[in-house]
């Protein structure tokens, strides 16, 4: 067999200069056994053998490839009339949420009222405390004023007592 043509092709193959047809020719050549292959061809034989075996293995795997699931349009959806009560849980959930929100709002309002009352009560207490303080202050001021009034009289009384003592003592 004339291997020169194949060797020349192989050289061009390694250089990346072969066409698809030439590469197919090389694959065909290496797919058959050749007893007296020259060294340059022996070098490439395992590579082409590898390609062949990989392709065979992949073809075996491809046979196990399941049928594709096609897009939704492939099998037009059948329209099934649904009873309005079919999704009762949805309605129940919506109702429950509405009740829950109502309750929460009511609680919130109640809480606000309580806080408002407490604030008013606190203000009232503060006012009463302030008033009591002012009243006490006023009373104490009155007391202090009246206390000063009596001092002068007491002074006179003291002089009188002293004078009385002197008189009594001299007699």
């Amino acid at each position: 067999m004339d291997y020169n043509h194949i060797i020349a092709l192989l050289d061009r193959y390694w250089e990346g200069e072969t066409t698809l047809e030439e590469e197919a020719l090389l694959r065909r050549f290496f797919s058959e056994p050749h007893a007296d292959m020259p060294e340059p061809l022996q070098e490439a034989a395992p590579l082409f053998g590898f390609f062949r075996e990989e392709i065979e293995q992949e073809q075996a795997l491809e046979e196990r490839l399941p049928e594709p699931r096609l897009p939704a349009e492939a099998s037009p959806a059948r329209v099934v009339p649904l009873s309005p009560f079919r999704h009762w849980m949805k309605y129940a959930a919506v109702l429950l949420m509405a009740v829950g929100m109502g309750y929460a709002m009511k609680q919130h309002q109640r809480q606000e009222t309580k806080v408002h009352i407490a604030e008013i009560r606190q203000q009232k207490e503060e006012e009463e405390t302030r008033m009591a303080y002012l009243e006490t202050k006023k009373a104490l001021q009155l007391l202090a004023k009246n206390l000063n009034k009596g001092t002068e009289k007491m002074q006179k009384l003291a002089y009188f007592n002293e004078a009385t003592g002197l008189i009594t003592g001299t007699n």
């Binding site: 992949e58 795997l61 491809e62 196990r64 490839l65 594709p68 096609l70 492939a74």
Partner: peptide, 26 residues
């Protein structure tokens, strides 16, 4: 859908082969 079935689905073996080489898992 016809175009998809006629032009895309037939190349799925090639797509599988390509993916298999990259991932190494069937």
């Amino acid at each position: 859908l016809d175009l998809f079935l006629n032009q895309v689905v037939p190349v799925r073996q090639k797509l599988f082969r390509f993916a298999y080489r990259l991932l190494g898992n069937e």
